[in-house]
C-alpha cells in the first residue's frame, strides 16, 4: 500500500470504486460540511473536497477534508496549482498528512478570470501562481512519498503518504493529444485518475482504447466521471459551454420529455427531471463500468448530495466494501 487509504484499498481489492464530491461552503460555519459528509458517508469510498472551485473562496479543501474525516467520511483533498507555489504546496501536503489525510487530487484549477463569467463576483483581479502544473505537482508528491525528498532536494524526516490522483478530460480538445496528456500524468506518478463528466460513452470508450494501447490502464486506476444531470437546461448548458463535455442529443431529449410531461407545473417539472437525471446517471454508470480498464466511478451530484444514495443503490454498488483492519 502506498497510502493505506480506503480508496486505495477498494481499488487494490479489485472491486469497482465509488467516489463522490463535497463542495465546501462560502462560510466559516463547519455544519454544512458536517451535514454533507453524513449524507455521503457509507455510499462512497471517498469524497473529493473541492479546492475553491471556479476560483471562488470557500472553506479550504484541507480544512473541510479534515472535518469530513472527523465525521467518518474519507476525503480526497484537492490541490490546485492556481493558488500556491511549491513551497506552500509541500507545506500543506505535510500538514494534510499530519492531520491524517491520505488521498490528494492534483488539478490545474479554474483560472481566476473564470468566476467572473458566473453569477458570483469571485476575484478576477487576483494574481495566480502556477509555479508548477498538474504533472509537476503529481511528480513532487510522488517524490515526497517514495523518496522522502522535497522538490528542492531537502530530506523529509517522515514522508507524507498520499494516494495520488489527477484529473483527465478525455474529450477535451485537441482530442488526439488527450491520451498523451494522461500518459504524462501517469508517468509523473498518478495512482488514480478521475475524469471530467462523461455523457458520450462511445467517445469515451474510444479514448480509453487509446489509453489502453499506451499501457496506461494497468498503471493507474481510471475512475469515470459522471455529473448527475438535474435538468434539460443543465445538460444543454454543459453541452454548449463546459469544456471537454459533449452531451448526446438523445439525453437532452429525454430530459426535455420529462420536463414537458409536467405541463405548466414547475415543481413537478423539476421533480420529473431530477428523477430522469438519476435514471440517466445510473445507466451511464453501468455503461462506464463495462468499459475495459474502468476501475470505478466518480459521481458528482453538485449541490445535490442526497442523490448519491439512490444512485449508488440502484447501480448495484451498495453496500460499499469495508476492511476489518482499517
Amino acid at each position: 500500500m502506498k497510502s493505506g487509504s480506503n480508496l486505495e484499498r477498494v481499488i487494490a481489492s479489485g472491486k469497482m470504486a465509488v467516489t463522490a464530491e463535497l463542495g465546501p461552503p462560502m462560510s466559516a460555519d463547519p455544519h454544512e460540511v458536517i451535514k454533507k459528509a453524513n449524507i455521503l458517508k457509507g455510499f462512497c469510498d471517498a469524497a473529493n473536497i473541492t479546492d475553491c472551485q471556479t476560483a471562488v473562496v470557500r472553506i479550504s479543501s484541507i480544512a473541510a477534508a479534515f472535518i469530513a474525516l472527523r465525521e467518518g467520511l474519507e476525503p480526497v483533498m484537492q490541490m490546485t496549482c492556481r493558488d500556491r507555489n511549491r513551497i506552500a504546496m509541500q507545506a500543506d501536503l505535510l500538514g494534510a498528512a499530519a492531520l491524517g489525510l491520505k488521498n490528494c487530487l492534483c488539478i490545474a484549477g479554474d483560472h481566476q478570470m473564470f468566476s467572473a463569467a458566473g453569477k458570483l463576483k469571485g476575484h478576477p483581479g487576483a494574481k495566480n501562481v502556477y509555479d508548477v502544473d498538474t504533472c509537476q505537482l503529481v511528480g513532487i508528491m510522488r517524490k515526497m512519498r517514495d523518496e522522502g525528498l522535497q522538490q528542492g532536494g531537502d530530506k523529509l524526516e517522515v514522508a507524507p503518504k498520499f494516494f495520488i490522483g489527477a484529473s483527465w478530460t478525455p474529450m477535451g480538445d485537441p482530442m488526439d493529444f488527450r491520451p498523451y496528456n494522461l500518459k504524462k500524468k501517469v508517468d509523473a506518478g498518478a495512482d488514480f485518475i478521475q475524469t471530467q463528466g462523461i455523457y458520450d460513452m462511445e467517445l469515451f470508450r474510444s479514448q480509453m482504447e487509446k489509453a489502453r494501447n499506451l499501457g496506461l490502464l494497468e498503471r493507474t486506476a481510471m475512475l469515470a466521471g459522471i455529473i448527475v444531470p438535474k435538468s434539460a437546461m443543465m445538460l444543454k448548458y454543459m453541452d454548449s459551454s463546459v469544456a471537454g463535455v459533449t452531451v448526446p442529443k438523445s439525453l437532452i431529449e429525454r430530459m426535455n420529455k420529462a420536463k414537458e410531461a409536467a405541463g405548466d407545473d414547475k415543481k413537478k417539472a423539476r421533480e420529473l427531471q431530477e428523477q430522469e437525471g438519476i435514471k440517466i446517471t445510473i445507466e451511464l454508470i453501468q455503461q462506464a463500468l463495462e468499459i475495459p480498464g474502468v476501475r470505478g466511478v466518480h459521481i458528482q451530484a453538485i449541490e445535490w448530495e442526497s442523490a448519491i444514495e439512490p444512485i449508488v443503490k440502484a447501480a448495484g454498488l451498495y453496500p460499499r466494501p469495508t476492511f476489518p483492519d482499517a
Partner: peptide, 16 residues
C-alpha cells in the same frame, strides 16, 4: 497559456 502550463493543455480548452 493563461496558466503557464508546461505539460500540455488543461481541461479548459473549448473549441481551441
Amino acid at each position: 497559456c493563461s496558466k503557464s502550463l508546461m505539460n500540455g493543455p488543461c481541461g479548459g480548452t473549448n473549441n481551441g
